[in-house]
Write a protein that binds this DNA or RNA. Structure first.
Lengths: 161, 161
DNA sequence: GAACCGATCATACTTTCGGGTGATTTTTCG
DNA sequence: CGAAAAATCACCCGAAAGTATGATCGGTTC
């Protein structure tokens, strides 16, 4: 009985199928009297089961509406209105917790500015390799693996504007 | 002939159906020799057309699977001295000016969520190549060349939260 | 019914990122 | 001072991102 409990849907489908076959049986005997009506019979079955297939498919696969979870911070207020005008002050507590170094923070800000590694290197007068190292460390500290994620997280933590 | 041109898919389905019937005809003659095998015949048709129905259904209805984006709140401490939190409303004017399509906007949002092209492709049930195309178009429309820049610009234009 | 657009996918190629490892030089601080 | 932390750079490799081009298909529009 445990089976039925956990497979209610399957059970229903099976019963429905069985009923359909029964119905077909009846139709069959009725049609067998008339000779050469097998085509009609086959056609009926075909249409019926095509519809069944469609129904089944929709019933079974339609809830495939993948719920993709995206973490989104709702608190963040964008200072688009001129009235507020307060400058951004970083969340120092969060900043300290991330343990980012000054250089790493700098790189992070430039990443958020949409710059490439090469551009960041030029802007900071260091080599691309150095930039990469900073980025790798910064990723580790922010527990991310992509620059877009890093920017997202940093903004969420109010480390950057 | 015009009909065929504009209903190619329907035509293909019809032809496929016709072919199936033909095949069934062959099977029929083969099975009619053996008496009382009508049940097997009917069963075959049933299974075949159930599958056809499933296939049809998936072919016709599946592409419209929406990716439901759920907002998951994560509490972040922050000194907020702003009037109150207001829900994000996109700048429709800016959005219209950028001329982004629905799909492109979708991709843009997922990019902002820190997802990779592959992840976006999976979430949207399309190939990575398609995602790349969308991204390329979106970059052109936003006049950027990197995803971080795209996110930056989109946020600045209040196209995305 | 032609013309156009959006969505989809492909192939091929280049560039950029990111991971891993190791090394040297400053700076900082107990 | 001397150890620890930060900053600097290099090299390699594979994966991801981005560019360019072209094709099909379906729907809209005039």
């Amino acid at each position: 009985m445990q089976f039925l409990k956990h497979n209610k849907m399957l059970f229903i489908y099976s019963v429905a199928l069985a009923l359909l076959f029964l119905l077909l049986k009846l139709v069959e005997y009725r049609l067998l009297i008339i000779d050469h009506s097998i085509e009609i019979y086959a056609g009926s079955i075909a249409i019926l089961f095509t519809l069944l297939g469609i129904w089944l498919s929709r019933k079974l696969f339609s809830p495939k509406k993948e719920t993709l979870v995206i973490e989104k911070e709702t608190i963040v207020e964008r200072e688009v209105f001129v009235t507020g005008q307060h400058a951004f002050e970083p969340n120092k507590k969060a900043l300290k917790e991330t343990d980012l170094s000054a250089r790493e923070l700098e790189v992070l800000q430039l990443i958020a500015g949409g710059m490439s590694n090469q551009e960041i290197a030029n802007a900071m007068y260091v080599s691309v390799n150095t930039v990469k190292t900073h980025i790798a460390n910064l990723f580790y500290k922010l527990e991310v693996s992509r620059r877009t994620q890093a920017v997202e997280k940093a903004k969420k933590l109010s480390i950057i504007p």
